[in-house]
Design a protein around this nucleic acid. Structure first.
Lengths: 219, 219
DNA sequence: CTTGCTATTATACGATCGTATAACAAAGGG
DNA sequence: CCCTTTGTTATACGATCGTATAATAGCAAG
């Protein structure tokens, strides 16, 4: 008969940077799939395939892990965005249109993305670090939009002042945020690529950059 | 010397409806001011001036209380919105403009409002009841917008099809959502009534309804 | 092969969570 | 004035939370 030997779980050592990323991404998966309330240190560590204690070895607190995961997520999102822009060989107008399309179609849209986003937004009201992460990522997104809009207007011979470019970027960012949100939460309300069509049409209306054929846009 | 008599706390009885509303509003205050994580049954009951057990006498679970609070909040918000519209004696175009202004200024904007909103949105991904509340309130808001936009376009002699009205309402709702969000989270980025100006300008661009003087809008 | 470092596991602790249950008391009707 | 009803308090329980601490073991260096 087997003696009741306590077998200690085997493991592999990983460099700190790698393990930190694994833990952050496990955190994101848990929040996205089961909500922020389910994101306990035990659930996260189980998702990452490690034991709970390891979290506090790599992060000072659960709060710091959440904040780091937020920053990591936004970084990945922005990187994907910039990479997409560099792929497009077309002119500035088509680049702006591509950006709109990419923003309003999966995998950028999706209920899990919204759940992640909402969970983080809820914290920025009472967590200065989360607020700072939000401000940084928001500013970077806006700068990308300003570049796109400025280039598109310049190509059309309607170059605008930096102040106006900034206003347009805010407005476009807002409409994209809102459409992304509604399209992600209630996708069944937007058959096919209606979301994209409304987005292109709205951005056209705001900036004056023609992104859709007008006869099609009217109906 | 006084014997250590355990004095039972005095209280007043309230009709069930009244008490339920008190508990829901206490819940909203807690979530808005301290976040969803702080909204424990103990914190909520303390805020409402009662003991924790009472919550489970009026609600089957904390989850049900949260859902009821969400529905109550959206109901109050929509009611305030409709009341505002009924006050305005101006024409359809000015009514639409008033609606935009009201949406993008306090007390509709505000970090606490965002915190409430984000806390609820985060739940609709894994809570069918919260999802239903969202769908209902979203639909009602959209219908109000459709009415406003339709009337404004009709007055301008540019009456549009119901399908197009629906698309416009979605787009306007999206841009208002996005601007409301950003203006509420980072109010310092929008001095004075710049948020309102961008909103009016964007809604004009989307719907074609002139809500701003063009010379002012350009700079 | 041995040694040292530290990433990782194992275990435990106190706090707080949502919930269950029973005693108490406020309010209205006989 | 008593009695019934039920809104309300008081208390307790088990589960789970984030965190602290010590033991273990992977892995590179010597």
């Amino acid at each position: 008969m087997a003696e009741d030997q306590k077998k200690r779980r085997g493991f592999r050592r990983a460099p700190a940077d790698r393990r930190r990323v694994e833990l952050m991404e496990a955190t994101l998966r848990i929040i996205a799939s089961r909500g922020i309330e389910a994101a306990s240190v035990r659930a996260i560590s189980a998702e990452a395939g490690v034991t709970p204690g390891l979290i506090r070895h790599h992060f000072e607190s659960k709060e710091e892990l959440i904040g780091a995961a937020y920053a990591h997520h936004m970084e990945v999102l922005l990187r994907a965005c910039v990479d997409v822009l560099e792929e497009v060989r077309d002119g500035p107008v088509e680049r702006l249109a591509s950006f709109v399309r990419r923003t309003l179609t999966p995998p950028v849209t999706g209920s899990q993305e919204v759940q992640l986003w909402a969970a983080f937004i809820e914290k920025i009201g009472h967590d200065p670090k989360m607020r700072q992460v939000h401000m940084d990522s928001y500013r970077e997104f806006r700068q990308v939009l300003e570049t796109l809009i400025s280039a598109a207007l310049f190509e059309l011979g309607e170059a605008a002042s930096p102040i106006r470019i900034g206003q347009l970027a805010i407005a476009v960012n807002a409409v994209l945020d809102g459409l992304w949100l509604e399209g992600s939460i209630l996708p069944e309300q937007f058959p096919n690529d209606e979301l994209v069509r409304i987005g292109l049409q709205s951005v056209s209306g705001i900036t004056g950059v023609p992104l859709v054929q007008k006869d099609v846009a009217k109906q």
